[in-house]
Amino acid sequence: MEQNLESNIRQLLANQNCAVLATSENGRPYTSLIAFAASDDLRRLLFVTARATRKFSNLRQQPQVSLLLDNRKNCGEDFRDAMAVTVLGVAGEVPDAEQAERMNLFLERHPLLQEFAASPSCALLEVKVQRYILVSRFQNVMELVFES
């Protein structure tokens, strides 16, 4: 089970295109669906958003975020088979020096978003992951914790 934790998380990150991102606006939770890409060491999740969005302004105020992704198929077997991972981390804009490399990583995963990502009104953001919390078999919960 413990050996599988990391590979299960990797698989979920590799197989799901989108995740739910939770931000907060003065203590009020706010969720959005985003397309993401994960770095190889699992430490970073990348996504692109227009600067005019609510999530972007929320992040500027409060960079602590949470994400959820899962592999449910919307059928009864989900309760047995589906896995969900909750991510805790801190979001921020990717520094200029790393822009090119990170953008490549993101676009490799989402080639259809090339135009969108290239727009001057968009920002490339990364979530520095502090912790993954994986729920499997309905109620088993394991955590992968990164030292800051």
Binding site: M142, E143, L144, V145, F146, E147
Partner: peptide, 20 residues
Amino acid sequence: RQSGTHWLSSTMEIRVRQLQ
């Protein structure tokens, strides 16, 4: 023995939170 807190590397740690 393996323990509930299992170090993978010096900066990454696996923890059991809830078990069925």
